[in-house]
């Protein structure tokens, strides 16, 4: 696992290099062709907008004024997005394998498999996956590290566009080494912690920061992979209690939904022609 994860694609977000310009937010929407949200004044501290991640906002810069004894010490930023866990709770929770942890690293979503149960949303310790409540056939939406771009040898849109070098894309092992070196060289600049190295068993989105991420409302999620909590329990549940009727209903529902998704996709294509 360790060796494999070291070779996975990952990125290191260093908020001591971030200028909070939000070019990443726009680049994400542009590449994914996501609609803008209707916002008002500021949705969070500083310049934050929209107020939170949503089915049309996959990444979000958050702002924090670090004040000590009534004196501003620093203005710091944090890029919120999918962590692409090494052992993702969402993948584990998904009954139909609509979410997949790819060998390359990104956690991707197969919309044609999704039955819309939203277990992934409930399971995610970072509250990342979002649901298209407003759509007739809603899908789960979240960052997929621009998997389509990676397949073409391109960087994710956000990291491609970052003007100040705050986002570095690479392999996880090397990035952890680099993060460690940056902290070692400038111990006064950073909290001595690589966020994502061990959180929930490790994530592919790594972060080093000048302030504890709790300041941005990031919860302490521990170092145990979320799926491991349920493994024991699930293996103990006798298979027989899953009623045949329930099983069939679920199958029927999934089949119908797949048809509907396919139909919707066809319609979109026709429309675009």
């Amino acid at each position: 696992m360790e060796e494999n994860s070291n070779n996975q694609k990952a990125y290191l977000y260093d908020n001591t290099k971030c200028i909070g310009c939000r070019a990443c937010q726009v680049a994400c929407k542009q590449w994914k062709n996501l609609p803008a949200e209707k916002t008002e004044f500021f949705g969070g501290p500083g310049y934050q907008n929209p107020a939170k991640l949503s089915s049309s906002t996959f990444t979000l810069i958050k702002y924090h004024e670090e004040v000590e004894e009534d004196k501003l010490k620093d203005w710091v930023f944090f890029k919120e997005q999918c962590r692409h866990c090494l052992e993702p709770a969402c993948v584990s929770a998904c009954l139909v394998k609509a979410l997949e942890k790819t060998p390359e690293g990104p956690v991707i979503y197969h919309e044609n498999l999704c039955m819309g149960c939203r277990y992934c949303m409930i399971s995610c310790p970072f509250d990342i996956p979002k649901f298209q409540y407003h759509k007739v056939i809603p899908l789960i939406q979240k960052c997929n590290y621009c998997y389509d771009r990676l397949e073409e040898g391109l960087l994710p849109a956000c990291s491609q566009t970052c003007p100040s070098g705050a986002i570095k894309f690479g392999t996880r092992g090397e990035l952890i080494e680099e993060a460690r070196e940056r902290i070692f060289k400038n111990p006064d600049r950073y909290v001595n912690h690589i966020y994502g190295e061990h959180e929930v068993g490790g994530t592919s989105t790594l972060c080093i920061s000048s302030v504890p991420l709790e300041k941005f409302g990031v919860r302490d999620v521990g170092t145990t992979p979320i799926p491991s909590y349920s493994k024991q329990f699930l293996t103990a549940v006798p298979v027989v209690i899953i009623g045949a009727a329930t099983f069939c209903t679920a199958l029927y529902w999934i089949a119908k939904r797949r048809e509907a998704v396919a139909e919707a996709e066809n319609k979109t294509e026709i429309k675009e022609e």
């Binding site: 939000r22 070019a23 929407k29 542009q30 609609p35 949200e37 209707k38 916002t39 004044f41 310049y47």
Partner: peptide
Amino acid sequence: RVSEHWQAGAMSRNLPWLAELMPNAF
């Protein structure tokens, strides 16, 4: 000025993605 808008705003206040980031004067 701010990074989210451009000059007198004719170009950026009409772009939804930028308008979303800073929808109001302040």
